[in-house]
Design a protein around this nucleic acid. Structure first.
Lengths: 152, 152
DNA sequence: CTAATAGTCTACTAAATATGTAGACTAAAT
DNA sequence: ATTTAGTCTACATATTTAGTAGACTATTAG
């Protein structure tokens, strides 16, 4: 399961991707995305510590992406906040941990299947950027707007 | 993350798939797979309540699959014990729940991506049976044995 | 019948994790 | 210098996970 924390982070990042190079303040993000403000503060601080965001203090300050949005992959963000994508530590590429109860990893059926799951998940999340998602949502929105126009 | 409970369940089911129509007792399963016996008891009882296992009491009793192993999909087992495969409830096919913080689901980027993840996961887990995994492990084991033979 | 074997049921516990909140503090810009 | 806004430390609480303990019940071989 995706944690709420991670979900909030992604929503906030998509919002920031839509406004490149403009500092956005937490209060606005929190209100727009329905995220508890104090909680969002701690999430954004964490993302900043990981180097994905930068902040500007004082009047006209706020948070912005420190990289172009097409260079931030969802997998990277999720790993930062929730840990490995793998459903079981023995198939994680980034944080492998052996299972104590497994004498021969190669003979573990759970492992074999979970490796497939991990790979297919990583294939999606490590090849999708903030920019792509933001653009896709934009397209859907415009399409919806056009069909709404139809009825005027 | 796959819960240990679910992992233990799958390991036990693979073991039962290897011995069709023979009651196996909990103590043997627990010892062979390195699972705390009492914990395994409760897991198998749950699987029985869901109809996937049947038990026989008394001497020579134990647990066995109540369906042929090629008719038990991993997705079914995981859903029983851990809930939906979807990483977020708003993309679950079996237990959909709306997100409170989402005014327009179609415009939610998190949802769009997580739907892809869910689908790819389900494609694997709902099309892989206990029998397939058991057979695959069997093949790997034999192959390993042959290459070991090589050195004698 | 009865002893042994084996599954069932209820309750409890300990530890980790998730989801926040409170409040004082610090830095920057106008 | 004041206001706006981000930072830091600490706490609180609820839920979930991963078990344990122990009494109880059912079955069957002999």
């Amino acid at each position: 399961m995706l944690h709420k924390k991670t979900k909030y982070a992604l929503k906030a990042l998509f919002a920031l991707a839509r406004r490149p190079n403009v500092p956005v303040h937490i209060a606005d993000l929190a209100a727009a995305e329905g995220i508890p403000k104090k909680f969002l503060e701690s999430i954004l601080a964490e993302l900043k510590n990981h180097g994905i965001l930068q902040s500007k203090k004082g009047r006209g300050g706020g948070y912005q992406l420190s990289r172009a949005s097409h260079r931030v992959m969802l997998g990277e963000v999720i790993r930062m906040l929730s840990g490995p994508l793998a459903p079981i530590p023995c198939v994680s590429q980034t944080r492998y941990v052996r299972c104590e109860d497994c004498p021969h990893e190669e003979l573990c059926g759970v492992r074999a299947v979970m490796k497939e799951v991990r790979d297919s998940t990583a294939r999606i999340l490590d090849h999708t950027s903030l920019a792509e998602v933001a653009a896709q949502m934009e397209r859907i929105k415009n399409k919806g707007y056009e069909s709404a126009m139809y009825y005027i």
